[in-house]
Design a binder for these strands. Structure first.
Lengths: 346, 346
DNA sequence: CTTTGGCACTCCTGGCTCTGGAGTGCTAAG
DNA sequence: CTTAGCACTCCAGAGCCAGGAGTGCCAAAG
């Protein structure tokens, strides 16, 4: 179907159709092309080419007497082969820098803030996965008594506090014992990768100090939730931007999206296969694997902590999105975020 | 204008109009009233009464030959004087109990979960303020070194961890000094109300131990953000439910709302004056003080920790909302949340 | 004085038709 | 292979109309 590599002229026409459609949101006609972009050929020739591009699956016609619109595979070819990469505009670069300069030093908030920034700049919906614990190093655990038989266990990792959980005990335990236990753990496990610390090792330490099994449970739970193999949290922002897009004049579309954003699950599925990979990804329309998102696209780029990608930063918008610009924007933002994390010098 | 107290028949008609309009979302006609509710009078009489109710400001007519719709003050009278309080349905009661039973024990997550629950049950947008620190007691501070000159300060209050902040120091400080300092603070301030702990007291302790001013700064920041007099965080859920309401067929309305939900500021303004009061509140249409929200209403109820209200739980929906039901629902949910908090027995 | 049946009047809603225009596909000639 | 020309298709919007839902008012009845 689309075996034959596009010859240069066809490629240029396809690229131009995508470009024009992204700009105007109107199906693009053969005349528009010849008038606004000076290809040296007549509209009739363009019509012939477009008919072939349609037969090959790159374009579609909303109805017989309308202009052409790119299909998923039209966009795909555009993104993979035709578009000119863009650099981040100076204005955007400055806004990112200014905005993140006085951002919080706390990881969670820093990510939230970055997400909002990206939503604003992209005028789309932005979502960012928070780092999962796997790559984190255990730094410190602290058991604190806050009422006779109730305490709180706090696990600190190389990114800052990553879990806290309340626990109740069957019998009183002295504050002193809690401190001794905390210290023993810290001495033993500091700077180990958190997911390497096994339940048996934990039990061993508790037993050594002759403390109750209750405590072992409490600690295991806290460590568990610090490394929770579950879905990472996902921050999102900018849903309202989507409303400006003509494709959302139909309210039902929007409903699916709002629901999807609220259940983080589907968002996660979208980025899961790109998770912590090193390269930007673009998913277009049906590639998202969800019929409700069929006319949307997502660009996803990683952000790093030191040498490792620890989370993904994504922009969700209409399929008709300015791919090059958003890729530059997402990359730039990811870059700044990574920089900011490195500065914290943890 | 609306001085004269409504006589019984007028009151009944007003109540019925509200009831019917809430149910159908259609302007209600005099005939509908006589047919579906058996008032013993003719539609002509009802028309006369409705004309008077309109003159008095309780009803409005979308256009001359349409039925009547309640005005803000029509709803207001309904809520204050006419409606029958409802009890929580058994089904709802059960769902609340089941849902919160295996909810997280961690405050933040518990609130998030409650918010989502309330959004689902109310089929509207739910938002819940998280407790502000003012009412919290200081329990514990822990300074932890996580890299040569970098550390993290964690403040634990009676609700669990409430602030954590990274700090950097000009010179190395031994882990031991950090521990000594933490202990000194804990000994001195444990169980004091967090907003009573002044900066000078903090400085005094640091000085006593002969430690650097850097540390004073770090601790002050951490305490500051634990008691941050700022807006409390607000969790929200269920925006997509609003889309089912006919009043949102116009997309622009929704845009305002999404924006408002994302900037928590406006949400906070809505509940600010009811903040931590002991009674449920209802705000109707323009009473919300925001033209963009003119055809919405909000019900707000407090939840408690021990004897004190520490946050508010709200439902935002179309002005045409089932007030009695939502009040029951919000109250029931608040009740369960308070219960859950008390159980944690902090 | 209140209630009510009757009736004329208003205004919205949905469906229908019509027209202009934007685009295409095809054909035939260069 | 390209292109001018032309017939054809289809949509979008405007205008029109009919139906119907509801009201307001009047005059008669209780």
């Amino acid at each position: 179907m689309k075996q034959p590599r596009l010859d240069e002229r066809k490629a240029y026409i396809l690229a131009t159709v995508v470009y024009e459609y992204v700009a105007t949101a109107e199906p693009v006609a053969s005349q528009t092309l010849t008038q606004k972009y000076n290809l040296g050929i007549s509209s009739a020739t363009v019509r012939n080419e477009m008919a072939e591009l349609e037969a090959e699956g790159y374009l579609v016609q909303p109805h017989t007497s309308a202009g052409r619109v790119p299909s998923d595979s039209g966009y795909r070819t555009y993104v993979d082969e035709l578009m000119q990469p863009e650099a981040l505009s100076a204005a955007d670069r400055r806004r990112i820098r200014d905005d993140l300069r006085d951002a919080s030093r706390e990881l969670d908030e820093l990510v939230d803030q970055t997400t909002r920034l990206l939503g604003r700049l992209s005028k789309s919906l932005a979502f960012v996965t928070k780092p999962q614990s796997e790559t984190q190093l255990f730094k410190h655990i602290q058991l604190i008594s806050i009422a006779p038989r109730t305490g709180i266990a706090i696990v600190v990792t190389s990114f800052g506090v990553s879990a806290q959980s309340l626990f109740e005990l069957g019998s009183d335990v002295s504050a002193d014992d809690l401190t001794r236990l905390s210290s023993a753990f810290n001495a033993r496990f500091a700077n180990r990768a958190i997911d390497e610390i096994g339940e048996s090792e934990i039990a061993a330490v508790v037993a050594e100090l002759g403390l109750t099994d209750d405590l072992r449970g409490a600690i295991t739970t806290a460590m568990q939730s610090a490394r929770s193999g579950e879905i990472p949290e996902i921050a999102s922002a900018g849903a309202q931007n989507l409303l400006d897009q003509p494709e959302f004049s139909d309210v039902r579309k929007l409903r699916s999206i709002l629901r999807i954003v609220e259940e983080q699950r589907t968002l996660y599925d979208i980025v899961a296969d790109a998770m912590n990979s090193e390269n930007p990804r673009v998913k277009i329309g049906r590639e998202l694997g969800n019929e409700e998102l069929a006319d949307l696209s997502v660009v996803t780029v990683p952000y790093r902590f030191g040498p490792h990608a620890i989370g993904m930063l994504s922009i969700l918008g209409p399929r008709r999105m300015p791919y090059a610009r958003l890729l530059a924007l997402a990359s730039g933002t990811a870059e700044s975020l990574s920089q900011r994390l490195a500065d914290a010098d943890v």
